[in-house]
Amino acid sequence: MEEKVLEILKNVFELDTVDTTCSQQTCEKWDSMGQLNLVVELESEFDISLEPEEIGEMTSFQDIIRILNDKGIKNE
């Protein structure tokens, strides 16, 4: 699952390389429009619906993993 999230981050923010330290601070294209694109990709990849509160606090790779874990999506 972490692999998939990294892949999504890479595609959405058009990155050459990506790792688990990726966050809004380190990533130039992770603005509000990027956030929206990220949410849509995560929702369709994991077949979930992210709540506005979760979207609001989702500002790094680690946040995404925590939120997905809370929704019962774990690393295989």
Binding site: S32, L36, N37, V40, E43, S44, S49, P52, I55
Partner: peptide
């Protein structure tokens, strides 16, 4: 409506 309220989207982004 979720995306309307958080991002002011008048079309569902899933229809991109």
């Amino acid at each position: 409506w979720k995306f309307y309220f958080i991002s002011q989207m008048g079309i569902n982004p899933k229809l991109t």
